[in-house]
Structure formats: structure tokens, C-alpha cells
Write a protein that binds this DNA or RNA. Structure first.
Lengths: 188, 188
DNA sequence: CCGTAAAGCTAATACTATTAGCTTTACGGG
DNA sequence: CCCGTAAAGCTAATAGTATTAGCTTTACGG
């Protein structure tokens, strides 16, 4: 029997694929091991346990989100940048329903790459707000508002929390428009 | 041995207390049964299973939230009402960290009380927006923005997603102020 | 006061993660 | 070329989760 040749990286990457397929909460070591053609306990040679796996998945997803937000913001400013980054955020969450929730887990302070990815993602938003003349505490507050509004919308949408027939895409556009007017008329 | 005398209601209420103590995700039938002084399978005489328990917990928490939002809105209008209801929302989430996440689960269409509680909670927000001159589709979008922003803030706060030292209470005040200006300058 | 329905129990099944300890593979140095 | 060793895989065992089946006992109403 040839060896599977796993590494921590391949395990985490396959976990990400699996999570997107079956959902973040139904990601299980048993299913992951089966997917990788290996017995369940063998995974422990590459990952400390399921909690550590979630943490690494969080780092992976955060890095991906940061990259996409940065790319969406490139070459844009003001309301254009705001709309593009918000859309990229929601797009990632919809394309990766298993990875996205992992993003919410706070980084392990001992994982510099994870911390850096988080800072890059926040930085992409922060940069947009400079275009609105916001900096210092105001920019921090405005960044938190952006993250709260966009993440909250994604979470409610995923949970089926929008019962009424009103089109959800249009509500999202209105949300981003609302952020734009809030930022243009910010009073600290 | 006297009988414990459980009912579906007492089981769900104790589940709510337990969830607030140990966290929503660590609510377990074993711990609940121990708390109620009963063997684990006995719970199945009152609740269909853990999923149904979560659903009933969601109905309970939604009704409580709706009551508190309605109470906070009473006798207020405009920005005052907005601030009071947002504060009540966040206050409930912080006082009931186990119940609150259950709120996110969509109501079972076959549970009229749950549906009514959800509508009451949304109605409390909707009513405030009439004070801003918003109705129809605009009110739906604005309600979704309110829920998204406030829930998102609560979720990020609970997850430890706000790393910077900037005071979180003040950021929340700024979020609500931002909603106020967005609503005052709404363009549909 | 006794029959019955419900409320509780024990036992068993099928999952989950985790640890211990063994076997085997692959690879690098003599 | 071979062989020693570290890592990669395995099986077995433990402890926790939910769930179902089927039995016993309690409480209550006719």
C-alpha cells in the first residue's frame, strides 16, 4: 500500500473544500479522513485536533478574504471602492459557505500569518475610509460599522432570516448605499 | 423516588438558563438532564431531540427579544427610539449569551407563536422607520440594514473580533449614529 | 381502588474526538 | 547498496455525544 503523503497544508486545504460542500458545522474528522483516503487517527500526525483544524481553516479563509478584498479595492476609491469591497465580501461568503464562518474565529496571537491576514483585510476597509476623510478613532468606528453591517447581512441571509419577498440583492445595495451616506456625513 | 414532574416548558426554560451559563454550543442533553435531576433519555418524553430543543429555545429567545424591543420603543420616536431599541438588542445579547444565538435560527413555519414573535421584533424596528418617513420597500431594506448592523456588531463583539483598543461601547454609539444619518438621508 | 397513560428508567446503537502503542514506509548517511 | 531512524500510517481502546427500544413505575381519573 503506497502512502497517502499528507501534509498539514493538504489536510487543511481539503478541510476547506469539504466544509464548503457539507457546511461548516458538519465538517468532521471522519469525513475528512475518508476523503483523504486515510484512517481517522492518522490526521493527528498533521493537525493537533479539530479545534486546531478550525483555527488553521480560519487562517486560510482570512487570507483568501484579505486577498480578494485587496484586489477588489485596487484602482478604486470612494463609493466605487466601498461597493466593490462589500460585493467581494458577500461574494466570498456565498462561494465559500463553509470557509466563511471560520473567518469569524479570532486569530491565535501566536500565528503571525493569521494576524497579518486579518490586518490586511481590515486595512483594505480602512484605506477606503480615508477617501471619506475618516481617520483615527472615526476610522476605527467606521471600519467596525462596515464589518458589522456586511457580516451581519451575510449571516442573516445564510440563516434564512429574511422572510419577506423583497429582493435580497437590492437590500444589500441599499445597505451599502446607506453606509456610503453615513460615511459622507460622519460626525465623530 | 418521587417524580421530577417535567414539562416541555420547564425543559426549554432550563435549557435557556444552562445555555446562558455554558454557552450556546456547549448546551448538551446530558448536562441538561443532570441539571433537571433526570436520566438523559427521559428528556425525549418532552422534546423530540436536540434540534427541536434548539428550535424551541429560538422561539423562547425571540419572544423575549421582541418583548424587550417593544418595551424599549414605547413612548419614543426617531433617533431616541432607534438608540433605545439598538441598546436593548445589544443588552439582551450580552445578558443572554446562550439564548441570543438561538435567535438566529429561522422560525419553523408550523410554529405560529414563533412566527408571531419574529414579526413583533421586526415590527418594532419597522415602526421606528416610519418616523423617518420610510415605508414599503425602503422600510424593508432599512429594517434589514438595522438587523444586519446590530446583529453583526454583536456577533463580532462576542467572537472577540475587535482587536484594537478603541472602546467598543463608543463604536456601537457611532454605529447607531451612522444608522440615524443613513435613515435621515435615505434615497430609495 | 384499580386500570391506564405518561414519565421515568436501563440497555443498546451509532456517531463524534482523542490517546496509546504498534507497524511500515521512505529516505539519507555510511 | 543497505540499513537505521524518524515520520506516517495503522488498530484498538476510551470517553463523550444523540437516539431508539423496550421495560417499570408512578400518578391520576373513573
Amino acid at each position: 500500500m503506497p502512502r497517502a503523503g499528507l501534509t498539514p497544508q493538504t489536510v487543511v486545504r481539503e478541510a476547506a473544500v469539504l466544509a464548503d460542500e457539507v457546511g461548516h458545522d458538519r465538517l468532521t474528522l471522519a469525513a475528512l479522513a475518508a476523503r483523504l483516503g486515510v484512517a481517522l487517527p492518522s490526521l493527528y500526525k498533521h493537525v493537533k485536533g479539530i479545534d486546531a483544524l478550525y483555527q488553521k481553516l480560519s487562517a486560510l479563509a482570512t487570507a483568501e478574504v484579505a486577498a480578494e478584498l485587496t484586489r477588489a479595492a485596487a484602482g478604486r476609491a470612494g463609493g466605487d471602492a466601498l461597493r466593490a469591497v462589500a460585493a467581494a465580501f458577500r461574494s466570498y461568503a456565498r462561494r465559500h459557505p463553509g470557509r466563511y464562518p471560520a473567518t469569524q474565529r479570532a486569530p491565535d496571537p501566536a500565528d503571525p500569518e493569521h494576524l497579518a491576514a486579518g490586518e490586511q483585510a481590515v486595512g483594505a476597509i480602512y484605506a477606503i475610509l480615508r477617501g471619506y476623510g475618516l481617520s483615527g478613532d472615526a476610522a476605527v468606528d467606521a471600519t467596525r460599522m462596515f464589518r458589522a453591517a456586511v457580516h451581519g447581512f451575510i449571516a442573516l441571509e445564510a440563516a434564512g432570516g429574511f422572510g419577506l419577498p423583497r429582493d435580497v440583492d437590492r437590500s444589500f445595495d441599499q445597505l451599502v448605499a446607506g453606509l456610503d451616506t453615513a460615511y459622507r456625513n460622519w460626525r465623530s
